[in-house]
Design a protein around this nucleic acid. Structure first.
Ligand code: FES
Ligand code: FES
Lengths: 142, 142
DNA sequence: AGAATTAAAGACCTTTTTATCTTTTATTTA
DNA sequence: TAAATAAAAGATAAAAAGGTCTTTAATTCT
C-alpha cells in the first residue's frame, strides 16, 4: 500500500505535530527512538522532506526537526505525494497502463470506490487536525 | 497495492476464465503475448499456482494452462492469498505492528473502511462471476 | 576562537522484487 | 519409436527498496 519510507514519514510528522506545543524541536535520535525507526534511514527520509517544505529543520545544538504553522496546514496527502507520488490513487488495480471509465479493467468500478475513499481521507485531513485527534482521542503512533 | 506478480496472475486467470468455452487450453506464449506480460516471468508465476490448485495445466503438444470447474469457483481473493498473502487486508496502514480497534493508529477508522471494501470485493466475487462480467460488459484485460 | 551538537550529503551494503535463460520432464502424434 | 511440443525446474541477473556508515557543514555555547 504505502511504502515503508512513506509510513515512517507520516508517523514522524504526526509525532512532531502532536508534540508541537511551543514549536518544540526534536532531534533525529529522539524521534527514531520514540517511534522505533532505524536512525540513519529516518535521517535520509527527513532530509528529503525539508527542501520539499513538508517539514522544517535547524542545525546545531538545540536544533532538530519541527513543523511550522505552514507545515501543519498541509493535508496528509502532501507527505505521500512527496515520497511515493500519487500513482497509488491513480493507477489501475490490476496494473493496466491507464485507469479510466472509458477503459475499465474488471475490478475498476469497485476498486475506484475504495481508492477514492483512501484518497479523500488523506486529502481532506490536515496534519494539524489529525494531530489534534491524536491528542484528544487515544491514537497510537507505535 | 497488489504486487506486479499478483496483478499478472489475476489478469491471466481472468483471461483464461473469460475464454473458458469448452475447457479451452492456452499455452504460456499465447497468454503472455495476449496480455503483454514477459513470457519467462509469467511461466514462473503460473508454475507456482498449479500445485496450489488455483489453475490447472497439462504438458506436451496441445497442452497448456486452463481452469477446471473447481478453479472457476474460487473467489479472486484466493489468487491474492496464494501470491501476496492476506497482509494487505490485515496490516495497519501506517505500519504499526498490529492493527486493531484496541490499538488504533490515527488513520485506523477510515483506513479500515477502505481496506474492508477492497477485501469484500475480492472475497465475494468468484473468478467465474467476474469472467462472465468481462464477457457481457466490456471490461479490458490489457 | 574552540568545542560540542546536530542536520546534510554521499558512498556503500543487503534484501526483495522483477525478470531472463537453460535444461529437464511429460505428453502427443506421426 | 522418434520427433515435436509444452510445462517444470533451477540457476542467474537486473532493478528497486530498505538500511548503514562516514564525512562535511552549520549553529550554539563556553
Ligand atoms: S482500470 Fe483498473 S482500476 Fe481502473
Ligand atoms: S492500526 Fe493502523 S490501520 Fe488499524
Amino acid at each position: 500500500m504505502l511504502s515503508q519510507k512513506c509510513k515512517y514519514a507520516i508517523r514522524t510528522i504526526l509525532y512532531l505535530a502532536s508534540k508541537n506545543e511551543e514549536g518544540e524541536k526534536k532531534d533525529l535520535k529522539k524521534i527514531s527512538e520514540a517511534l522505533k525507526i532505524p536512525t540513519p534511514y529516518l535521517g535520509k527520509i527527513l532530509q528529503e522532506l525539508v527542501p520539499k517544505k513538508i517539514i522544517s529543520s535547524i542545525k546545531g545544538p538545540n536544533g532538530g526537526f519541527f513543523l511550522t504553522e505552514q507545515n501543519l496546514q498541509l493535508p496528509v496527502i502532501k507527505i505521500i505525494e512527496a515520497i511515493d507520488g500519487l500513482t497509488l490513487f491513480e493507477a489501475c488495480g490490476l496494473g493496466l497502463h491507464v485507469c479510466s471509465d472509458k477503459h475499465p479493467c474488471p475490478i475498476h468500478n469497485d476498486f475506484k470506490v475504495a481508492r477514492d475513499h483512501l484518497k479523500n481521507m488523506f486529502a481532506n485531513k490536515s496534519i494539524e487536525e489529525l494531530a489534534k485527534e491524536i491528542n484528544s482521542k487515544h491514537f497510537m503512533l507505535i
